[in-house]
Design a protein around this nucleic acid. Structure first.
Length: 169
DNA sequence: TAGCAGATACCTT
DNA sequence: AAGGTATCTGCTA
């Protein structure tokens, strides 16, 4: 959080180092102070989101040190409806870019959960990858899957039903 | 239907 | 100008 109560970065992980790296990466030094304030409304919101609730309030973001391309991608992520998913390739199509570049930008999301990057999956509708600052993406697939299931998505084997696919516009 | 390459792709520093 | 990539597509069997 910055001094004007705008969200600069968020992180959650069983790896404390990863959390710290994520937060410092997107914060201008000195690091914002409010990180430990668990009672802050954003902290409570984050817990709700992790448990699979709908977002309950609008969030003011403050992006520092990001590129226009990244913010462009993130703005698409914010439009993905609750309980639905889209793919890297479809996002690439609407912004006239390539799927791998989109993957890079999605992976550099400064505010996971608030910006729902867990709702982006590969075109084969498997869960795909998820990571946070150095954790190997493939080690966090179960986290991503759990988040989607809490939003009501029922996997068929390792695949997400096509009905859950949302096409960005 | 599953596994593997190639793409001369696309963004970042 | 080089290096990284949380992908896609088409081909093989």
């Amino acid at each position: 959080m910055d001094d004007e109560d705008q969200l600069v970065a968020s992180a959650f992980s069983d790896d404390r180092g990863a959390v710290k790296r994520q937060l410092t990466k997107w914060s201008k030094p000195p690091m914002p102070k409010h990180i430990q304030e668990a009672k802050h409304r954003y902290a409570e919101e984050m817990t709700r989101l992790f448990r699979g609730s709908h977002s309950s309030s609008e969030v003011d973001f403050m992006f520092e040190g990001s590129t226009g391309f990244q913010e462009n991608v993130w703005s698409v992520l914010e439009k993905i409806p609750y309980g639905r998913v889209t793919t890297y390739g479809l996002i690439a199509k609407v912004i006239n870019s390539g799927p791998r570049a989109v993957g890079q930008a999605v992976g550099s999301n400064p505010c996971p959960l608030f910006i729902p990057c867990h709702r982006v999956v590969p075109s084969d509708m498997t869960v795909g990858n998820y990571s946070m600052m150095g954790k190997r993406p493939e080690d966090n697939g179960d986290v991503k899957r759990a988040l989607l299931e809490r939003e009501g998505i029922r996997f068929q084997g390792d695949k997400i039903p096509l009905a859950a696919l949302w096409t960005p516009h």
